[in-house]
Amino acid sequence: MLESPIQQYPNIRGEVTSVAPALKVTDIHKSFNRRQQGLPVLKGVSLTVEQGEFVSIVGPSGCGKSTLFHIVGGLVQPDSGKVWMNGHEVTGERGHISFMPQQPALFPWRTIEDNVILAQEVKGISKREARRDARKWIAKVGLSGFEEAYPHMLSGGMQQRASFLRALLSPEELMCLDEPFSALDALTRSDMQRWLLDIWEENRRSVLLITHNIEEALLLSNRIYVFSSRPGTVLQEIAVPFPRPRREEITEDPTFLALKRDLSNWMKEEQHKMQILR
C-alpha cells in the first residue's frame, strides 16, 4: 500500500472527509465561438486545492477566471481537460460546489434565516434541521437580531456575510468565492477580509477565491495562482509563507510587501499586454 502524501484535514464538522485534493483541475482548454472564430479563453489551466486549503486566483480582468468557475461548477463543458473533486471525476457535473457570487444574490422574499439555508434546502436537507444550525451561525457571523429581516433591510457588508454563510452552511466541501467583496467600499472590504480570515481559520474549509485584489489574496490564502491575460494560463504559483492564525499586521511585514510588489508588477504587465492586443 502506498502511503498518501497528503495530510488529512478535518472539515467544518470535525470529520475527515477525504485525502484526495478537494479540487484538482487538469489541463483545461476552452474557447468560445464568436463570429465563426474560436476565441480561446483558457489554455491549459491546471490547479489544485488541497483539503482545508485556501487558494486564490488573481489575474487581469477578462482572463477567463469566471469561465474557469463555470467549468468547475459544471455549467460549462471544457473543450478538453478534467475536473476532479475528492478523487472523483466530476467534469461537467453540477452540484458539487458551494458558491458565493459577486453580488450577494439573496432572495428578497426570504428572511435572512431562510436565505442562509437555501443551499442546504437545494441539497435536500429538511428545513427544520437546516434552521437549527442556521440560528447558531447567524449569531456567530454577527447577524443576530436579523434572522427575520428581509435582505433589503441589511447593509451591503451584512448581505455579503449572509451570502457567505449560505455558502459555508452548504454540505459541499469546496467553497468557490467569485470576487465576493468587489462591490463593497474600501473600508467595508478590509473589514470583511478580516472577518473572513477569522471565520475561515476557525473552520478550515477548502476555498477557491477569485479576486482582483492582491492584498486580499495575500492576506487570506495559502497559495496564489497568478493568471495571464486571455487566453488564461497559470503564470505563477506562489506559496504564501505566513503562519496561521494570521493577524492583519502581516500586511506591514517586509516579505508581504515584497510579494505584493512582485504580484502587482506581473499583473500590470499582463494588463498592459491585454491593452496592446486590443
Binding site: F69, H70, G73, G74, L75, R94, G95, H96, I97, S98, F99, P101, Q102, Q103, A105, F107, L118, A119, E121, V122, S170, E172, C176
Partner: peptide, 19 residues
C-alpha cells in the same frame, strides 16, 4: 444573477422554478 447562483449550486429545473 440569482438564476446563475442556483445553477452553480446544482439546483434542478424544478427547484429553480419553485424556489
Amino acid at each position: 444573477i440569482m438564476l446563475s447562483y442556483m445553477r452553480m449550486i446544482g439546483a434542478s429545473k424544478r427547484q429553480i422554478f419553485v424556489k
